[in-house]
């Protein structure tokens, strides 16, 4: 019998891509409307907010998978005994960062969800203004930039790991080419994420970027 350990690990890998990874891409894309101005963002956010049976969608496709991925991920992260000092190979560093970004994201996302989704439940309206207020000080901007970069890194490298965990890329060649691909995905999503953050801080600068 496949052990519970095996099933949990594979479920963790699967949920990381579907739905969490896909949600991240959708989320960053909606955010990107901010680069077209407050009105465009409000319209996009409003569309997402007005989706039918939103609560069900959120619970099934975001909250439950994210909770499992986060809690089981903490368990996985603390099982490793990092040894990048002795074995400073490229993949070992990525392995190390995968665990650290994951742990940081638990904190970042808890904060982020508190400030946005829970604030919305408590009466703050979800719009461009809300994010502009959150990003009103340089520390918060830095925190959000690190958060976005961690999320994008964790997703890109996790995508590579997903393909290995499920035995899709087997040969060293396919693993290497997939590495290049995930680096490109990381760079593109990082640009999308960071431009969106700056759009809330200073819309005029982003329009020029």
């Amino acid at each position: 019998m496949a052990s519970r350990d095996f099933v949990n690990r594979r479920l963790h890998s699967f949920l990381g891509l579907i739905p969490i990874g896909l949600f991240l891409v959708v989320h960053l894309t909606v955010n990107y409307f901010a680069t077209r101005g407050a009105e465009a963002f409000d319209k996009a956010a409003n569309f997402m907010e007005k989706l039918p049976y939103l609560v069900v969608l959120e619970i099934v496709f975001i909250y439950l998978p994210l909770l499992f991925h986060a809690i089981y991920g903490i368990y996985i992260a603390f099982q490793a005994k990092p040894n990048v000092k002795r074995f400073g190979y490229y993949r070992n560093w990525l392995f190390f960062f995968q665990r650290w970004t994951g742990l940081f994201l638990v904190i970042f996302l808890a904060w982020h969800i508190w400030e946005t989704r829970i604030a919305m439940l408590r009466g703050t309206e979800l719009n461009f203004e809300m994010m502009a207020n959150i990003l009103d000080n340089p520390w918060m901007v830095a925190f959000y930039i690190v958060g976005v970069l961690c999320a994008v890194y964790h997703f890109s490298n996790g995508l590579w790991a997903f393909l290995v965990h499920w035995g899709i890329i087997v040969t060293p060649k396919s693993q290497r080419y997939t590495s290049y691909l995930t680096v490109i995905i990381f760079i593109l999503l990082a640009i999308v994420g960071i431009r969106s953050v700056f759009a809330f801080v200073n819309p005029d600068t982003v329009a020029m970027m």
Partner: peptide
């Protein structure tokens, strides 16, 4: 696939870098 099995791999790929016999361990893992 039981306890302590293949799911324990985290893809740091140190094994293939370190194996003195040059065994393609990460290919076997995948």
């Amino acid at each position: 696939m039981d306890e302590g099995g293949l799911q324990g791999c985290g893809n740091s790929q140190n094994c293939v870098q370190s194996c003195p016999k040059g065994i393609p361990l990460t290919t076997s893992i995948a």
